[in-house]
């Protein structure tokens, strides 16, 4: 595992082991594709997950790519930072086809524009007109009160549920 870390450091990236079977690499935005394909060639065949972290006060999104190599049971975490307003990122479909789904999800919930991903249609949310929900500046409580209007309405025979005591 250390061999990988040394190699990556050699490439001018700061990499440090997290656990005895996992290490992380933080990569500038442009070199992500290069690092991912390099890792894929050295055994990290499986693309596990793409996550996105919203550092609202730093005004940045952090994209986290998790890879795994089955032969030597290692996990690699590739992190990169992209600016928060009109965030764009090149799509990794060319390296792993299944990135399309993860990128679609991140796009739907964070609004990150993935260049080169053909299928960025809405996935979970139906006719959603507001800002992507998982962003920190999205106030879910106000939204739910606005949409679901949680207040009694006597006129239509909707009374507050009468509590029936259990005898």
């Amino acid at each position: 595992m250390l061999k990988h870390v040394e190699k990556l450091r050699g490439m001018g990236l700061e990499a440090n082991p997290l656990k005895d079977w996992e290490f992380e690499v933080s990569v500038p935005k442009e070199r992500v594709a290069e690092v991912l394909s390099y890792l894929k060639s050295t055994g990290f065949k499986a693309f596990i997950h793409l996550a996105c972290v919203d550092w609202i006060d730093e005004g940045e999104f952090e994209l986290v790519y998790n890879l795994e190599s089955y032969e030597d049971a290692l996990q690699a975490v590739v992190k990169t930072r992209i600016p928060r307003n009109n965030p764009t990122m090149e799509s990794m479909i060319s390296i792993w086809g299944l990135c399309q789904v993860y990128e679609r999800e991140v796009h739907e919930f964070f609004g990150i524009e993935f260049v080169g991903n053909p299928n960025l249609k809405p996935f979970f949310l139906e006719n959603w007109m507001d800002i992507p929900p998982l962003r920190k500046d999205f106030n879910t409580l106000v939204y739910s009160e606005e949409l679901f209007e949680f207040k009694e309405d006597e006129t239509h025979g909707i009374k507050a549920p009468k509590r029936i005591e259990h005898k």
Binding site: N85, N86, P87, H107, G111, E113, L120, E126, N127, M129, D130, I131, P132, D137, F138, N139, V142, Y143, E146, L147, F148
Partner: peptide
């Protein structure tokens, strides 16, 4: 229908919304 067929965005302040295509 209010829940199923929404036509207007629910939250009021849309200005910093970076709406995707």
């Amino acid at each position: 229908d209010k829940v199923f067929r929404r036509t207007t965005p629910v939250l009021k302040k849309p200005e910093e919304v970076t709406k995707s295509a």
